[in-house]
Design a protein around this nucleic acid. Structure first.
Lengths: 319, 319
DNA sequence: GGTGAGCGTGAGTATTTGCCCATACGGCGA
DNA sequence: TCGCCGTATGGGCAAATACTCACGCTCACC
């Protein structure tokens, strides 16, 4: 009931138009201002808004020789069905920015399939970045399913965001898993898993045609700990048991063999088993901290597809 | 055998990397310079080179309300199977810049098909822009075929560029038509058309699954004339016969009915017949000069798909 | 081996952009 | 109704970017 019923849409429209004139038309902000009848500052704000809101996507159309080499080496060494290596952004800069557009492209490739696919999704910053970088496409023929519980300990919806935002962008039916990643007792877990809704989502996830996951490290900055699912003491104990990394909450050792931990009985999500070419599992991960975890997951074939950045790729191959 | 065997590739690599850091990483040119160990000017030049060489693509992820409206109106009025309307860039600016990315997206949609398709191509600046804006994809399952002769009067290869560059980008088999658009006599035309190579290309073009064409105006700045295929006198005569526009060299009247001209017997290419939903013909065209030609082609259904810009769409609907 | 054309480089400079701040506008509660 | 607060606006300024020019280098052709 505001004075401008379409204030948000129309301001995004303006922003998109300004950005179009700026990036596609190559006009200066001054020219945009007079073209659209605005002050220069407003034009500047609109362009900046369009970029910030992700209305504008920039993609690189050139395969850097170094990245292609690394891709080929990774493909061969780990028998990958898909592999993309993007340029690094230099030390101290978030590698998610770099890999998100490429991950989005991989997802778009899957979404462009005519036939219906079941797409399973993990959680995490990298996947979140992927979804943000994705261009909206109508792909209602596919089904999106969550691999693991989407409820964080603090009750926030942050774990829902990957699947919900993706579903919104592609208008596909989606099956989040409205339970915590990890519950307190084995009994609780059994109770949850006996629920029809949970069983259905788990069944769908197990039958996924393609899976996109992040990869978590098990060093002292492990996502499982920073998100509060493990205490530092528990983490240290698991580290002593040989933990190298984690996919969808399931922890594996340095060779990518899942560990037989008491914790497992309290995980609500499904475990990603060794990937096959017909049912690929694409890992989206980059950063020095993740090298060990990535290498292990690649070695045993928990993932058989990879989107990463240059320094990470080099480190995985070097090690 | 130059000192730097990869000078061009490596400079493009550098340019791509600089542009990546600039647009994706959000670094300033100063930061790029120190990151890559260059002078600031060099970083600036690399970024600018990357943009100029089309190494970087910018896309808008927001459907402007006004454009969506125009698309819906065009779709309904002319029973189009595909329609994209892109924002205009303001008077005096080349509309090809605006429509090329959208045309490229339409082409990418076709190229993403798993099955093999025959894609027929016209010529012209708009299609050339489309190919430039296309991201390279491997699509060797499709065949690209030219609708009309690819030899210009001055013998230049400019008419080959659309199909050759596209073929290079997607690595698909391609069938250009190595004859002039227009020959001097009917006999010459019969001779050419009896050649096996020409027959084969024409046959393939007639069986195309999808066709992309530009649309030529028949006003005094008609492409057929500026390219030297018609003299001004001939043009005026054809104008008096009711010419409104031209697709692949074949001239039609204000209702989109092909004209029965003496000229026709000297055209070497195939005529695009009324499009069907199964075998769509996508017109790529924008600009005030093309409004009449476009409207006629849309009216009779010579094209049943359209990529244009806002002012052109509005003018076509208004008239 | 000399010479001129053409390209790439860095310095300097004009233009463009991003940011901060003072100010105006409009909603909302007292 | 008044005054407060959050938000949006345009002016001004510093930073960043694009352009121009003169120089030097390479390379091809004499």
């Amino acid at each position: 009931m505001s004075m401008t019923p379409d204030s948000d849409a129309s301001i995004d429209d303006q922003a998109a138009r300004a950005a179009w004139l700026y990036y596609v038309g190559g006009l200066t902000q001054d020219q945009i201002a007079s073209e659209m009848g605005l002050s220069r500052q407003r034009a500047q704000r609109l362009v900046s808004r369009a970029v910030g809101a992700g209305l504008i996507h920039v993609r690189l159309n050139h395969h850097l020789a170094r990245c292609v080499e690394l891709e080929a080496a990774l493909r061969e060494r780990f028998r990958l069905v898909r592999c993309r290596v993007m340029p690094g952004l230099g030390p101290g800069r978030d590698p998610v920015r770099s890999i998100a557009p490429a991950a989005a492209e991989e997802m778009e490739r899957v979404l462009a399939e005519r036939g219906s696919r079941v797409i399973a999704l993990g959680t995490g910053r990298a996947l979140r970045g992927m979804v943000d970088a994705l261009s909206p496409v109508e792909a209602p023929q596919h089904r999106l399913v969550s691999l693991l519980g989407n409820i964080a300990l603090d009750g926030s919806a942050s774990y829902f965001e990957v699947i919900m935002r993706l579903a919104e962008k592609v208008r596909a039916p989606h099956y989040p898993m409205p339970v915590p990643v990890l519950v307190d007792t084995v009994e609780e877990n059994l109770t949850l898993q006996s629920l029809g809704a949970v069983r259905k989502v788990r069944g769908l996830a197990q039958a996924a045609d393609v899976t996109f996951v992040g990869v978590g490290q098990m060093s002292d900055d492990a996502p499982l700990m920073t998100d509060g699912f493990l205490t530092l003491d528990e983490l240290h104990e698991i580290q002593r048991a040989g933990a190298a990394g984690e996919v969808a909450g399931w922890i594996y050792d340095g060779e990518g063999r899942y560990l037989d931990l008491a914790l497992n009985a309290r995980l609500t999500g499904v475990r990603v088993e060794i990937a096959t070419p017909e049912r690929p599992v694409i890992g989206i991960a980059a950063g020095a901290a993740k090298v060990v975890a990535l290498k292990a997951a690649l070695t045993s074939g928990i993932v058989n597809g990879l989107v990463t950045d240059e320094p990470t790729a080099a480190a995985v191959l070097a090690g």
